[in-house]
Design a protein around this nucleic acid. Sequence first.
DNA 1: TTGGCCATTATTGTCGACAATATTGGCAAT
DNA 2: ATTGCCAATATTGTCGACAATAATGGCCAA
Lengths: 222, 222
Amino acid sequence: MNLVTEQPVTSSDKTFFQLRKDIVEGEVSAGSKLSETELATRYAVSRAVVREAINRLETCHLVERKANVGARVVALNPEKLVSLYQVRESLEGMAARLAAVNMSDAEIAALNNLLDSYLQTVQSGETYYQEAGDVDFHYRIILGSKNDHLIAMLTEGIYHLIRMYRVQLGMAGPRVTTAFDEHKSIVQAISNRDAELAEILMRRHILYTKNSLEKKLLQQAR
Amino acid sequence: MNLVTEQPVTSSDKTFFQLRKDIVEGEVSAGSKLSETELATRYAVSRAVVREAINRLETCHLVERKANVGARVVALNPEKLVSLYQVRESLEGMAARLAAVNMSDAEIAALNNLLDSYLQTVQSGETYYQEAGDVDFHYRIILGSKNDHLIAMLTEGIYHLIRMYRVQLGMAGPRVTTAFDEHKSIVQAISNRDAELAEILMRRHILYTKNSLEKKLLQQAR
DNA sequence: TTGGCCATTATTGTCGACAATATTGGCAAT
DNA sequence: ATTGCCAATATTGTCGACAATAATGGCCAA
């Protein structure tokens, strides 16, 4: 699942990863306050490492902090989801553009194989693809951009937030087969080293996904 | 200059801003090691606040840290500048697109006035425009996007890095008048509420700037 | 002389205590 | 009864000390 193998080395790292996981998966609910002392006892570490973890989470936009007041888990709402997807569309479009230029032939071949191997899974109607396959696909292209800034922003910043929305708003719906076709055409463009087209297709793909999510949010609302 | 008025409230904030300033302006040289104890005595604060400042700088990509080893100021090189500008092109293109939709008529009018007021300055051949005017122009459009994620990424992340390159590699060169014309046409597109064109023009503008900087870097090299 | 191992040293990571700030609740005055 | 002020309380911000890890230098052996 986690293609970006960042393994914790320090106690602060572990607390950061654990807390991030708990936030993303709704273990600590959105909008709730993060008490440093409470978390310190909960994770059995000192307040200093909790503070450091919270600071890191703040830069990921997963928590918001006010000086001398404290930190809260971000609240989820449709407007934020939209602005998040606008950034994602922009960055991942550029990632696809760069991937078309910078991915090795071997990496592109592997990407094609990945999609082919998922084809039967999709045809059999399983929803597995949506979960892992989608993430895997996007990760490979992001990494294929070979642009460290871009990679960091997407994998450390945006993706955890998106996963938080996915998990907490319970979105693992359809759009599986159509998304698969879109993935296919993106990989086709990359295989042809057509950077321009790869970017356009990726942007449309993410735009469609955003629209799909918005519609689902509205349905849930009523 | 600083349109994003983030004023320090805590000691840690002040240290963060000061250290960032010192790094961006080359007061502490690129690639050098950041000793926590040394900085603590230098800024007359405890190691804890220095640590916090360094952590924040790390998420801005201004310093790199290895566990149990320490933090170093990032080293500048042309490759990183390129990848930085790729991200900037992507994000600021999206900012222009959104600004064309979300800026108020009043904000657009003010932007037009800003450019007109700079016109004579440019015609008289002064280089002032490059320094403040350019930054001002881009900031207004970024803020005009009304997308908090986008704004944060650009103003807190990318722009300080770009300024670091500007300052340390001594780039305040020409491209003043041509850049002005590009700015003019971008504002024109925004005034027409043409989001598509605004994005395209902004991306080209940043791409030109990148190419100009690259050329200058190569000239310096030989 | 050179290579590798071990002790020493310096730096970072973690902790608990104290200081400063914001919040909360009650009291008094209108 | 309501509003404003003040004190009490709780939470965050800052600090210095100790623990753990990595870098340094010397010593011994081949």
